[in-house]
Design a protein around this nucleic acid. Structure first.
Lengths: 140, 140
DNA sequence: ATGCAATTGCAAATCGTTTGCAAAAAGAAA
DNA sequence: TTTCTTTTTGCAAACGATTTGCAATTGCAT
């Protein structure tokens, strides 16, 4: 259920299409994001990028995540308490359960809940632009 | 549906019970929180408090909101993009729809959704400690 | 290869919030 | 009410996450 990302997204193609330059730092960062199913924050991406190319700066990580987010290529999640965490925008929409003890993120999906959300917004006279559903829990 | 807070909470009693001193700044801040049904942030509480007593500092607003949050007397909401906003912990649990154009917060409640959340957590082997459901939308 | 705009790294700035500290106020005791 | 001890305050400085200005570097169309 969780670690199911069908095919790696071709971020380089997305960058090219966006008309931005394909630089070494961007290639490294983008590869990291394309190659993981977890939800690293900027600092963690920076660490992983540094392991590949020690010259990459944290600023560039922030700039690149922001760029990719703007392209809709990745999603940013501001789970409570911590820094923003990122994940590929691949696959279907899902929500998150955050393990309060480990910080692990478990993805889940509920068609029923989505449906109910729409009904609620509808009843209130609103169109939902996006939503946030996060369950914070601990293992039973 | 929204502006329905049954009776003002007696925050002074809660403070006394918590064994902390009832100071003038606390009284002012607490009165503001007890007397509003909206979701002000720290700066807004500060502004309102300053109107009553110009001597109150922003630090004290932060300290007092944190104190009340610790007592379970108010809830803190970190809606996306902005600073934390607070509301009395009175009444039943509810979730929020945030008007992206105005910042207005509309409260709603869905027994069905809560139920589904529990089923999901259950299925994943987790106990939900708390959750966050926010709909971001604009008027239709 | 060349030239220029886009991108980088770095350091400094930003925003919301927290904290150290000395001065001020609460409230228990006398 | 005066005194005493303790908590609380205001202020300014520190904080963590993120953004930004700028000069140096780089991608890439020519």
């Amino acid at each position: 259920m969780a670690g199911k990302k069908n095919q790696k997204p071709d971020y380089e193609k997305m960058l090219r299409k966006a008309g931005v330059r394909i630089t070494r730092p961007r290639r490294v960062i983008v590869d990291i994001l394309a190659g993981t199913d977890d939800h690293p924050d900027a600092l963690e991406i920076f660490r992983r990028a540094s392991a590949v190319d020690p010259g990459i700066s944290l600023s560039t990580v922030y700039r690149t995540t922001k760029l990719l987010e703007g392209l809709g290529a990745i999603h940013r999640h501001a789970f409570e308490g911590g820094p923003s965490r990122f994940e590929q925008a691949q696959g279907e929409h899902h929500d998150h359960l955050i393990d309060l003890d480990t910080g692990d993120v478990i993805e889940f999906k509920s068609e029923r809940i989505e449906q109910l959300q729409n009904e609620i917004a509808e009843a209130l006279g609103y169109d939902i632009i996006h939503h946030r559903l996060e369950l914070y829990g601990r293992k039973r």
